[in-house]
Design a binder for these strands. Structure first.
Lengths: 224, 224
DNA sequence: ACCTGAACACCGTTCAAGT
DNA sequence: ACCTGAACACCGTTCAAGT
């Protein structure tokens, strides 16, 4: 008897779905990095053509947003212990740490505001923490906006394949600064180049939180 | 008599120099936008091959940095009138305005710290302004770092061909937020979506300046 | 409606060969 | 040393044609 030549022969190429596509994208991200997560590479992984993906994903930017939201699903909700400032700092640090695993995603998030379910959850938690801290209601929304921007930008700075070339160039420029033309830079050279990332981040969050609690909104706020 | 067929026949294709390359890049930027400033397009403009540019410019990132520094040369030095906070805000706003003309450059600046002459001049001026404000010396360097990051990130958010798609998506998500699962978002919906960019920017700068003047550095600062 | 192959219109960067 | 053409190894996105 001839072998059955029925449908479903092998690993049974699964039907395309948005979730399947995003899941495959995350897998490539974890194994090969964001730069390899291209429409073409992704299609190859799913055993189809790149054009097919456009039924489920508008473009590359939307794909990145979907991946990011997936990753945000893995960050733990804020613990209920400690003061609101501590909890706020912990949550934002966790968010930053997640982005730092794939700084290219932070760059995407900066340009295209996320709006996924997990991102909204994060916003929800942040707003609640500011409420806990008795930050005036009208100030909370703009407050978390700055906090998230700071966290996102801090992660985004590490994009571009961690080439410390530019950092080197800046360090050299600062050290070589002429004391007569650039007295301030000469005087601050040490501080300009010093500071562990985690310390700077923590100080930055303190600066923002303190600033937010002390700065009233402009009296009249126009729509965007 | 046959026409002289001497050297220098026509517009005399000028010799390649780094300055010439950067100048041509700025010209393309102004006329066609950053996306058109590619090695290939630039080479075409200079009547040569893309490979030739690599003698003067290490790569695209360095080219972008050179262009940015060129643009920074056009921002006016801070006026000497008014209080230091006002002058500081004005200078940072001017920096942001320049970047907002080409948000893609802001994105580059975020990833690859600039170290050009004009950028150093800006840093110098900012440090002087914080000194004017009696901000403690050790806090000034980290302070301008956050201020510049905020200004740069704010401009970078407008990169990617001003597609308000994502903003729309976020607005929809916020408005559709379920009041029981996302009570905070529902309560803050108005503020989350409100605010003219200039107002938000100004408030953000106030938050940062106030925060910087009120927040001491960690006692021990480790090298990077 | 979904899927596909092929095409369009590009990229950055490297390298062997020339001058 | 500088310059070049050609090549390598890719991209995102669209579209006509199939099922």
């Amino acid at each position: 008897m001839a072998p059955e030549k029925s449908r479903r022969e092998r690993p049974a190429k699964p039907a395309l779905t948005r979730e399947g596509i995003v899941a495959a994208a995350v897998a490539i991200l974890r194994e090969e990095g964001l730069r390899k997560v291209t429409m073409r590479r992704l299609a190859q992984e799913l055993d189809t053509g790149a054009a097919s993906l456009y039924v489920y994903v508008r473009n590359t930017a939307e794909l990145h947003a979907a991946i990011l939201d997936e990753l945000l699903g893995t960050i733990a909700p804020p613990s209920s212990e400690g003061g609101w400032r501590d909890r706020l700092e912990k949550l934002l640090t966790a968010y930053t740490a997640t982005l730092l695993e794939y700084p290219g995603l932070a760059l995407s998030a900066l340009v295209a505001r996320p709006s996924g379910e997990n991102y909204l959850g994060l916003v929800e938690n942040l707003l609640a923490l500011l409420a806990d801290g008795d930050v005036p209601l009208e100030r909370r929304a703009w407050g978390i906006d700055i906090l998230l921007q700071y966290a996102t930008a801090t992660a985004a700075e590490h994009a571009d394949g961690e080439s410390p070339d530019d950092w080197d160039a800046l360090a050299r420029a600062v050290r070589d600064a002429d004391e007569t033309t650039h007295p301030q830079i000469a005087a601050h050279a040490a501080d300009l180049l010093t500071g562990a990332p985690a310390q700077r981040m923590s100080w930055g969050l303190q600066v923002l939180i303190t600033g937010i609690t002390h700065t009233g909104l402009p009296p009249e706020r126009n729509p965007t």
